[in-house]
Amino acid sequence: MPQYPLILPGHDITEALLNAMHPLFAFKAAHTDRSSTTTFAPDPDLILPLTGSAVWRVEAWLLYGAGSTGDFKTSWSVPSGATGNRSVLGPGSTASDGGADNIAMRAGVHNFGTTANYNGVRNSTGNLSFVLETATIWTASAGDVAILWAQNTSDATATRLGAGSYMTARRLA
């Protein structure tokens, strides 16, 4: 199976070539809380720059906490002209087990800009739940991929995207 970057015999090993082999990584060192808003905004920590004319595999591991009123919703921002879909996996909109042991799950494939709603199943910003979102992105031009998020229903009780959440991107072609 071909790997990116393709290294042919006689190819010079350069700094740029070696850097192209590494995945990109973004990590949340501190919580971000949002209250009384349903307007999507990029997370300040989960943004990665993608090169154009490339294929990328992106994964977002999101630790969130939300009250049962505000809940949590996501969407993605991708470079202009990018194509592909994202897959989502996390507590469904009707999940109701506060111990997060036996809950209804959401699993689907959506456009980047489609809203994915997740229940504040643990009814707290201190007891976090987990969401996995992944995508293969074909970029036409360079630009950022970002996780956008907000409350699903405006609530004075904050919704939190927790420390320890992260996002990775690996160039495939």
Rank of each mutant, 00 (worst) to 15 (best):
S93Y: 09
L89E: 10
P91I: 02
N117I: 12
G99R: 09
D155Y: 15
A150C: 10
G108R: 04
T153K: 05
R106A: 12
G99V: 12
I147F: 01
S96I: 05
A156D: 11
N119Q: 10
V131G: 03
P91M: 03
S154C: 01
D101N: 15
P91A: 13
T134L: 03
T83F: 04
T114N: 15
G81W: 08
A135D: 02
A158L: 07
S96K: 04
N127Q: 10
A142I: 03
H110D: 10
D101R: 06
A82Y: 13
T139A: 09
A146D: 04
D101G: 13
D101P: 01
R106L: 12
N152G: 00
L89K: 12
S87K: 06
A104Y: 08
V145F: 00
H110A: 09
I137P: 10
F112Q: 05
T115D: 04
T153F: 14
N117M: 06
A142H: 02
I137G: 01
N102A: 14
D101M: 11
H110N: 03
A142Q: 03
D155Q: 08
T134V: 09
A100T: 01
N127V: 13
N102K: 09
S80W: 07
D155A: 13
A158K: 01
N119C: 01
T139N: 06
N102H: 09
S129M: 06
H110M: 10
N152E: 09
I147W: 02
D144M: 05
A140S: 14
G92P: 00
I137T: 03
T94A: 13
G126L: 12
V131F: 04
L128F: 04
V109S: 11
Y118P: 06
A158Q: 01
T136C: 01
S124I: 03
R106P: 00
I147A: 05
F130S: 09
A104E: 14
G98T: 15
A142V: 02
G143S: 04
A146L: 08
T159P: 00
N102T: 12
R86A: 07
V121K: 02
L128N: 04
R122L: 07
N127A: 15
T157A: 14
G113A: 15
A156V: 15
I147Y: 01
S93P: 06
M105C: 10
A100M: 13
N111S: 12
I147N: 02
E133T: 15
N111K: 10
D97Q: 01
L128S: 03
S154R: 07
A156T: 15
T153V: 15
A156P: 14
S96M: 00
F112I: 08
A107Y: 15
N123M: 02
N85P: 00
N127K: 09
A95W: 13
G126W: 07
R106Q: 07
G108A: 11
A146P: 02
A135Y: 00
N85T: 07
V88W: 06
A142E: 06
S154T: 10
N111E: 10
G92E: 05
N85V: 11
F112K: 03
L132F: 00
F130K: 09
E133W: 00
S96N: 15
L132T: 12
T114W: 14
A156C: 07
T136G: 00
